[in-house]
C-alpha cells in the first residue's frame, strides 16, 4: 500500500507543478472546449447544449477532481481571457461593415435603440429588484442584452460578477434567438429588417448567428443592432449608475 500512497503524492505534486504555470489551465481549457465542439457536432447542434455549457461542465468536473481550486485555475487561464480585450476592440469592424444599413431605416432604428435598449435592461432589473435579488446579482444582470465581452467589462465596472454576467448573457441570447421569430409571427411582423434588428438588440451574438440562418438581410440587421446596443449600453449604463449612487 505504501507505493500507492507514494504514487498518489507524486501525482498530486505533478498536478500542482503543472498548475503553477499557465500550462495546465490553458491546456485543459482548450481540450475541454474541443470536446464541447465535438459533442455539439456529434449531437447535430442541439440548442440546449451549446459548446460553452458542455465544455464549462467538463472544466468544472476537472477542477473539482484535481487538487486545485477555481482561483488557481483562473490564474493560469487568464492567459486565454486576456484575448477578450482585443476581441472587444475588434467588434468595431463588423459594426463598421454593417453600418451602411442604418441609412435605410435611420429614424426607426434610432428611436427603437434609444427606447428599446434601456427597456431590454430595465425590465429585467425591475423584476429582479421586486423579487428581492441582491445588489451584486442585479448589477451582473444589467448588461444582459449586450454581447458578452462588453457585458463582462460592464459588470465589473458596475461592481457585479463577471462570471455571472457571462451566464446571464448566454441565457438571454438563447431566449432572444428562440422567441423573437415566434413572437414576430404572433404579432404578424414579416419585415426581415425589423425581426433582425430586434433579435440583435435582445439576443446579441447568439441571436445574430441564428438570424444569419434565417436570411442574410436578417443577419445584417441583427449584427448592426448588436453593435449599436453594445456601444449604447456601455456608455449609458455606467453614467446612469453613477447618477443614481
Amino acid at each position: 500500500m505504501d507505493w500507492l500512497l507514494a504514487l498518489n503524492d507524486t501525482l498530486i505534486g505533478l498536478i500542482l507543478h503543472l498548475a503553477d504555470s499557465p500550462l495546465l489551465p490553458v491546456a485543459m481549457t482548450l481540450v475541454a472546449f474541443q470536446i464541447g465542439i465535438w459533442l455539439f457536432n456529434r449531437l447535430k447542434h442541439p440548442a440546449w447544449l451549446p459548446p460553452i455549457v458542455s465544455s464549462g461542465l467538463i472544466l468544472v468536473g476537472l477542477i473539482l477532481l484535481m487538487p486545485i481550486d477555481y482561483n488557481q485555475y483562473f490564474q493560469g487561464a487568464r492567459w486565454i481571457s486576456f484575448l477578450l480585450g482585443p476581441a472587444t476592440v475588434a467588434l468595431a469592424i463588423p459594426l463598421f461593415l454593417q453600418f451602411h444599413h442604418i441609412r435605410q431605416l435611420f429614424m426607426p432604428i434610432t428611436i427603437t435603440l434609444f427606447i428599446g435598449a434601456p427597456l431590454a435592461a430595465g425590465l429585467s432589473l425591475a423584476i429582479a429588484w421586486m423579487l428581492g435579488a441582491d445588489l451584486t446579482v442585479i448589477l451582473s444582470l444589467a448588461p444582459k442584452s449586450v454581447t458578452a465581452p462588453i457585458a463582462v467589462s460592464l459588470a465589473e465596472i458596475l461592481g457585479g460578477i463577471g462570471g455571472l454576467a457571462v451566464g446571464i448573457v448566454a441565457i438571454t441570447g438563447v431566449i432572444g434567438s428562440v422567441f423573437t421569430p415566434i413572437i414576430s409571427r404572433w404579432l404578424k411582423c414579416e419585415d426581415e429588417r425589423v425581426i433582425g434588428f430586434i433579435m440583435g438588440m435582445n439576443g446579441h451574438g447568439i441571436a445574430t448567428a441564428r438570424a444569419f440562418e434565417i436570411s442574410p438581410k436578417t443577419g445584417a440587421f441583427s449584427s448592426l443592432a448588436m453593435g449599436l446596443t453594445g456601444i449604447f449600453t456601455a456608455i449609458l449604463l455606467p453614467l446612469c449608475y453613477g447618477l443614481m449612487s
Binding site: V60, F74, I80, V166
Partner: peptide, 15 residues
C-alpha cells in the same frame, strides 16, 4: 469568443 469567455464563465459554478 466562446473559448475566450470559457475561463470566466466557469466561475459561475464556483460562486
Amino acid at each position: 469568443l466562446t473559448l475566450l469567455l470559457l475561463p470566466g464563465g466557469v466561475g459561475l459554478f464556483f460562486l
